[in-house]
């Protein structure tokens, strides 16, 4: 059965409804809890096994020893493919993924994040 303009009813009904799209920069969608977003590193937990470095498909992690059993991580977020394999590989849960997804940067340098190890906690230093 052919009916010309079959969608007319549907489109007219929708013309009075609010749009389905989000007004993005002003309204941000909420990501689910286990979203594979930006990775954060906890230097206190790291034991320096470098499993994450070994498994990272994009070679985006460097772990450096900065003292006795103290490690700091350097992330190349421009290379990271956000697969979160490092989170799975880490035996001590030193790496966690966050819900943050707005990761675009104008300067490539801003994508290089170093998590310095400090005695009194974690300081994130975006400078290389």
């Amino acid at each position: 059965m052919k009916i010309p303009g079959k969608m007319a009813k549907e489109v007219l009904r929708h013309s009075l409804k609010p749009p389905a799209t989000l007004n993005y920069p002003y309204v941000k969608p909420e990501m689910p809890d286990n979203f594979r977003g930006k990775i954060v590193f906890d230097p206190v937990r790291c034991i320096g096994c470098r499993m994450c470095v070994k498994d990272c498909p994009a070679l985006a992690i460097e772990i450096a020893a900065v003292g006795d059993k103290k490690f700091e991580a350097r992330f190349y977020l421009d290379r990271c493919i956000y697969c979160a394999q490092c989170v799975d590989s880490c035996p001590k849960d030193a790496l966690l993924n966050t819900k943050e997804y707005e990761l675009a940067q104008i300067d490539r340098q801003n994508h290089r994040i170093t998590f310095h190890a400090h005695a009194d906690g974690v300081v994130v230093d975006p400078a290389p």
């Binding site: 929708h14 409804k17 749009p19 389905a20 799209t21 007004n23």
Partner: peptide, 11 residues
Amino acid sequence: IFHARMQNRKG
């Protein structure tokens, strides 16, 4: 805008 609204877009 009418085209967009019928397609459930913002326009």
